[in-house]
Every structure is written in structure tokens, then in C-alpha cells.
Amino acid sequence: MKKFTVLGVLFLLPITAYLFFASGVNHFAKLPVLTENVLELNDFKTEDGKTKQLKDHITVLCFFGKDVESSYANAFNLAHEIYKKNYQFKDFQFVILTPEGVEDEVRILKTKLTEIENPENWNFVFGKPEAIEKVFQSLKTNYTLNDNSASPFVFIIDKDRSLRGRDNDEDFGVLYGFDARVYSEINNKMSDDIRVILAEYRLALKKYNSKREI
């Protein structure tokens, strides 16, 4: 009986170890910085004239362009799999860059988003197409905006205005952003990476508070 127990342990241990590490590679390291100094949003305003900043926030940065309705499916994927799970985390925000003149379309989308979760941290900001292009170019990715100043890819920006992503992704190599059209990519890769960066900041805050108590 003892012999079979030992054999069972020897058989199961490598499998258990593999599943443990394979399911959580990103959980044991910080999410890599791919681009530093992403351009701040100084040339953009919300509908009520306020500014939004990347600095000191964990931001999901999106580019919905002139044809907002064509991004509905992307927005709903993000709302269900990313926003709904994380929007109450302090300093977490969605920022969507859109051209001036689509305010009515944005209001319709925000109404639809209320059916999923309180959209208080969905921040739509408006600016000129040239300003949108400048921010997009500052990400230094291998993606491009279309003629409507839109992209299906969404990006994780940290509190220091650095683009975070994967530098050794099993499918893409360097993964700068996540294709919001692909539900599985948002539900798996992006959701995992958001957990990693939020855990990183939780740990940093915990260490900071511990030092203050000493």
C-alpha cells in the first residue's frame, strides 16, 4: 500500500506543479513596461469641460473613433470582463479618446453601459483627430488607427504613464494591447494582466502603509 502511495505522489507531483505554474506565469512578476512616457491627455476634455489625466491612475486606454456605434461590441466585452470586476479599485479608470462632434453617440453608449454596471469610471474625452493620433503614436506599438481615429486594441497604462503588456507572449511575442473584438483575449489575457497590475499596486500600498506604522 505504501509503495502505491509513493508512486501516486511521484506521478501527480510533476503534473500539479506544471498546472500551478502554467496557470499563473504572470502572477509572480510585474507586468513588463513596454513604452515609457505615454503622452498626457492635455488636449482633451470631457463633455462638461473637465480634463482627465493618465498620471497617478491605472488606465484602460481605448480609441473608439468617429463611428462610436461600431465599437459597441468591444465596449460590452470590456464592460463585462474588465470594467465590472475592477472599477471600484482606487485610481482605476477607463479613458476613451473620441473626436469632437460625437457627444450624442457617446451618451447613447453610456446609457447602454448602465445596463451592465455603473459607468462612473468610463471617461470619454474629446479632442481633434490630430491629438488622438499623437497619443496613439506615443504608445509606440505596431498598430495603427483607422481613418475614423479608431482602433480595436485597448491598452493598460500605469500610474507613471507607461504602457504595460507582455514581452514574451506565447502567441504574439510582444503584446502591446488587447483586441477588444476577441472575447477570449479580453477574458483571458487582458483580465489576467489587469489582475497582475492591480496586485502590484496593492502590494506597493501595503508595503508603504507598513513602513508608516513602524
Rank of each mutant, 00 (worst) to 15 (best):
K84I: 03
N142A: 11
D179Y: 14
V95W: 04
N118I: 07
P119L: 01
V125M: 04
D171F: 15
F94T: 01
S162H: 12
Q88V: 11
M190P: 06
E200R: 08
E185M: 15
H80A: 11
F172D: 12
L139Y: 02
K140P: 04
N121Q: 12
N188I: 15
L97I: 09
V135E: 01
E81W: 14
K189M: 09
K110I: 03
G127Y: 05
F89K: 12
F124T: 07
T114I: 09
I194L: 14
A199S: 09
T141N: 05
F172P: 02
E115D: 12
E117Q: 09
G165L: 07
I96H: 02
V174D: 03
V102W: 08
A150S: 15
I82V: 14
F92K: 04
L198A: 03
E105P: 05
D104M: 14
F126A: 05
G173D: 08
Y143L: 06
F126E: 02
F89E: 08
E115K: 12
D169R: 08
E117W: 00
K112D: 08
V125G: 04
W122T: 00
I197Y: 06
P119G: 01
I186L: 08
F136Y: 05
N121R: 13
L113F: 00
K85H: 14
A150V: 02
R164I: 08
L78D: 01
Y176N: 04
K134R: 09
I116W: 00
S191L: 13
I197M: 07
V95Y: 06
D179M: 13
E115I: 10
I156K: 09
K128I: 02
P99I: 09
D158K: 05
E170K: 14
D193T: 07
E170D: 12
S184K: 15
K159R: 15
V196T: 13
V135S: 01
E115G: 07
R107L: 13
F178V: 09
D179S: 13
K128L: 10
E185T: 15
V182H: 13
K140N: 11
G173A: 08
E103M: 14
P129H: 04
T114H: 09
G173H: 09
M190H: 12
F126I: 06
Q137R: 13
T114M: 11
L109F: 02
I156E: 06
T144V: 15
D91P: 07
S191H: 13
V182L: 14
D193G: 03
F92S: 04
G165S: 11
E81R: 13
I156D: 02
E117K: 07
I116K: 03
I96P: 00
N123A: 04
F178H: 11
V174S: 05
P129T: 04
R166M: 12
Y176T: 08
P99Q: 06
